[in-house]
C-alpha cells in the first residue's frame, strides 16, 4: 500500500511540475532530433551527421541523428517527422530521392510542406571499364548508335537519381543502351569490376577511388561545366550534346528539412546556424574529401531546386509506368 501511495504522490508532483514548466522557453533548450530517412552509413546519413555535429556546436545542444528508414522514398521517416510538433526540435535528413515519395505511393503530401536546407551533392559521371574501346563520350555514342542496346549500363534502382541521369543521357544523345539495375551504386560499380556491365553512371564521390585506381575510365560528367578531378579535366557531356539541357542537369541534393510551419524566430536561429556551419572548415573539408559541390541553399532558393526535382522525378517515373499515382493528383506541374 505504501508503495502505491508513494507512486501516486510522485505522479501528482511531476504532473504539476510539467504544467509549470510549459511556457517561456528559450530555443533551443533541449536536444534536437534529426530523423534521417535513409540508412546509417549512406550519403544522406553521413552528411547529416557532419552538419548535425557542427550545428550542434553552434546552437549549444546535441543534434541526434536517428535513422527511420523504409517505405517509398523514405516515406516512413517523412511521416514520423511530419507527425512531430512544429517546434523546431525535429529536423529531417533528406535527399533528392524523397521528392518522388508522393507519386510512388509513399508520403501523401508534396514536398512544399517542408523548408529545405541543401548541403550539396556530388555530380553524376559516366565511366566505362578500362578494357572498353571508348576513349571519349563521342566514341561511346557513335558505337551505341550503330549497335543499339549492345552496351550494358549499370546504375542503381529504377527511379533513382542515377537511373534518371542515364535516361537523360540516352535521350539527350539519342542512343539506346541495355540498362541493368542494381540495388545501389556500390554494387553497380562492383559489377563493372567483374565485367558484368561496361558502363556505369554513379556520382563522382562514389567513383573517386576506382577512377584514381585506374579501374574505371571517366568519359564525361552530366553537369553543364567540365569537372576538375585530381588534376584531370573531365569534359561535360553537354558540350557535345546540347539537346541534353532538355533533360539534365539533375543533381544530387542532400540536406535536411524542417516543417514549413515552424515559427519564424526559430527558423531564423536554424538558418543562422546552418549558414555558420556551411562556412566552417569542417564542412569545406568534408566537401573536398567527398567531391561534394557544397550548395548552402535555403529558403526560396532551395524551394526552387526542390520543386524542379520533384517535377522531373515524379513525371519521369509516371511516364515510365513505375509511379503509383499521377503527379497531377498532387498538383505537381510538369516542367
Amino acid at each position: 500500500m505504501k508503495k502505491a501511495l508513494s507512486i501516486l504522490i510522485i505522479s501528482i508532483v511531476f504532473v504539476s511540475a510539467l504544467f509549470a514548466s510549459g511556457s517561456g522557453e528559450v530555443y533551443p533548450s533541449r536536444d534536437i532530433t534529426d530523423i534521417c530517412v535513409f540508412g546509417a552509413g549512406g550519403g544522406t546519413d553521413v552528411a547529416n551527421r557532419v552538419i548535425a555535429a557542427e550545428m550542434g556546436n553552434i546552437l549549444g545542444v546535441n543534434i541526434n541523428v536517428n535513422n527511420v528508414t523504409g517505405g517509398a522514398g523514405g516515406s516512413i521517416g517523412l511521416y514520423q517527422a511530419y507527425d512531430q510538433a512544429s517546434d523546431g526540435y525535429t529536423i529531417i535528413g533528406v535527399s533528392e530521392s524523397c521528392v518522388a515519395s508522393a507519386v510512388m505511393g509513399g508520403f501523401d503530401k508534396r514536398m512544399n510542406v517542408f523548408d529545405f536546407f541543401i548541403i550539396g551533392g556530388s555530380p553524376d559521371i559516366i565511366s566505362v571499364t578500362p578494357d572498353a574501346p571508348f576513349q571519349t563520350v563521342e566514341e561511346l555514342v557513335e558505337y551505341a548508335k550503330a549497335n543499339p542496346n549492345a552496351i550494358k549500363a549499370g546504375a542503381s534502382t529504377v527511379g533513382s537519381l542515377h537511373h534518371l541521369n542515364l535516361l537523360g543521357f540516352m535521350n539527350g544523345a539519342g542512343i539506346q543502351v541495355n540498362f541493368i539495375p542494381y540495388d545501389g551504386s556500390a554494387s553497380a560499380q562492383n559489377a563493372a569490376m567483374t565485367g558484368e556491365v561496361s558502363l556505369v553512371i554513379t556520382s563522382v564521390q562514389e567513383q573517386a577511388e576506382l577512377i584514381k585506381g585506374g579501374l574505371l575510365r571517366p568519359l564525361a560528367v552530366l553537369i553543364p561545366e567540365a569537372y576538375e578531378f585530381e588534376g584531370q579535366t573531365i569534359p561535360s557531356a553537354f558540350d557535345s550534346y546540347p539537346d541534353m539541357t532538355k533533360y539534365l542537369p539533375l543533381e544530387q541534393c542532400i540536406g535536411f528539412a524542417i516543417k514549413s510551419d515552424v515559427p519564424d524566430d526559430r527558423k531564423a536561429i536554424i538558418i543562422d546556424a546552418f549558414e555558420k556551419a556551411m562556412a566552417s572548415d569542417t564542412l569545406k573539408e568534408y566537401g573536398e574529401n567527398n567531391y561534394f559541390t557544397l550548395s548552402g541553399a535555403y529558403g526560396d532558393e532551395a524551394r526552387a531546386i526542390v520543386d524542379n526535382l520533384e517535377s522531373v522525378f515524379s513525371w519521369t517515373l509516371y511516364d515510365l509506368g513505375a509511379a503509383k499515382f499521377s503527379p497531377e493528383d498532387f498538383g505537381i506541374p510538369r516542367v
Binding site: S11, F14, V15, A17, L18, S21, S29, R30, D31, T33, N62, N64, N66
Partner: peptide
C-alpha cells in the same frame, strides 16, 4: 543511446526534465 521511445508521455517527460 539517444533513441526516442515509441510514446513519450508523463514519465519520460519527467525523466527529460530531470536530465536537462
Amino acid at each position: 543511446l539517444r533513441v526516442p521511445m515509441p510514446h513519450e508521455g508523463g514519465f519520460i517527460n519527467l525523466m527529460s526534465m530531470v536530465y536537462y
